[in-house]
């Protein structure tokens, strides 16, 4: 099948790749860019394991074609830690709160939470649960994922304590 050239940036770096128009963004990132941190759990838009940020928005990269990313600025899990590998506050909070077991869902949750924490409005419990419920984790029962994002939000001063029920 004919391939097309696409240019976008990933984690600030310009990438120029040749892909079939039918190739998903997830596969484009994983195969053409070698960024295998973005995982595929369903390839039909339900699990959120493939979540990346496209122009600042959380996006299921299994539901988008690589060619649709022309000109986009993409962020993936590989861009979160410092170049020397030092974990950022969100990653550290996942580590400290045991927010992962097998780690397969983790990149998707990290990117979704990155978006949450970078929004201008501070986060509260209801919003946290609501947004994180768009991704699936089969190992943790979610408690520690929620705790991790809460902890990171507090550290980054993005957390609003909800009024007790």
């Amino acid at each position: 099948m004919n391939k097309r050239e696409v240019v976008f940036t990933v984690n600030g770096e310009t990438r120029r790749v040749l892909v079939e128009p039918r190739r998903t963004l997830a596969d484009t990132l994983r195969e053409e860019c070698g960024l295998t941190g973005t995982h595929l759990g369903c390839e039909h838009g339900v699990c959120g394991a493939c979540t990346v940020l496209v122009d600042g928005q959380p996006t299921r990269s299994c539901l988008m074609f690589g060619v649709q990313a022309e000109g986009a600025s993409i962020r993936t899990v590989e861009g979160l830690a410092a170049p020397d590998g030092t974990l950022n506050p969100l990653q550290r909070a996942f580590w400290e709160n045991h927010g992962l077991q097998c780690g397969y869902c983790t990149p998707g949750f990290l990117m979704l939470a990155t978006w949450l924490l970078e929004r201008p409005t501070p986060l509260d419990e209801e919003e946290l649960r609501h947004v994180l419920s768009s991704n699936l984790c089969r190992c943790t029962g979610y408690q520690n994922i929620l705790a991790a994002v809460r902890a990171a939000a507090r550290e980054l001063d993005r957390w609003t304590e909800s009024a007790p029920a």
């Binding site: 960024l35 295998t36 595929l40 996942f94 780690g103 990149p107």
Partner: peptide, 15 residues
């Protein structure tokens, strides 16, 4: 196990 997984450096079968 965690730091590598958190950096997206896991090596799962598909990788």
């Amino acid at each position: 196990e965690d730091p590598a997984l958190l950096r997206g450096e896991g090596r799962f079968a598909a990788d």
